[in-house]
């Protein structure tokens, strides 16, 4: 039962996010607003209620599965974009490598290594 009430909390925060978006027209997803609100609430309470932990942990573990149905769609548009794929692939792969290098290099410059291991 605690997982169920925790799940209701998560749904409620998501719905609050929807309401916030409706009134503010922010171009952010309600999930992110809910996430930030949940974080603020937990910080104010100073601990994680066991009900929220019971619902949040399995959901986080399943995150990869939840985006699968959308991701699979790409295999069904391969035909539509024939001839464009090499450009798209090069752009994504090279672009990602460059941006990862930039991110890590910047972080390394900005943060003195303290070796948290």
């Amino acid at each position: 039962m605690p997982a169920l009430s925790g799940f209701l909390w998560l749904i409620s925060y998501w719905l609050i996010g929807e309401v916030v978006i409706y009134f503010t027209a922010l171009p952010i997803s309600s999930g992110v607003i809910g996430m930030l609100l949940l974080c603020v609430t937990l910080a104010m309470r100073g601990r994680v209620p066991s009900s929220i932990a019971a619902a949040a942990q399995p959901l986080i573990a399943l995150l990869a599965m939840l985006i699968m149905p959308g991701v699979v769609g790409v295999f069904f548009i391969i035909g539509e974009l024939s001839g464009q794929w090499s450009a798209i692939l090069i752009a994504l792969l090279l672009g990602t490598l460059l941006s990862v290098v930039t991110t890590l290099w910047l972080l390394k410059r900005l943060i003195k290594p303290t070796h948290v291991r």
């Binding site: 799940f7 998560l10 749904i11 925060y13 998501w14 996010g17 997803s29 309600s30 999930g31 992110v32 809910g34 996430m35 930030l36 609100l37 949940l38 974080c39 609430t41 937990l42 910080a43 994680v48 929220i52 932990a53 619902a55 949040a56 942990q57 959901l59 986080i60 399943l62 995150l63 939840l66 985006i67 149905p69 959308g70």
Partner: peptide, 16 residues
């Protein structure tokens, strides 16, 4: 996929 919403909210916990 509808669970993606609450799952994103759930990320607030490790963040905290």
């Amino acid at each position: 996929t509808v669970l993606l919403g609450p799952a994103t909210v759930a990320l607030g916990m490790p963040l905290y």
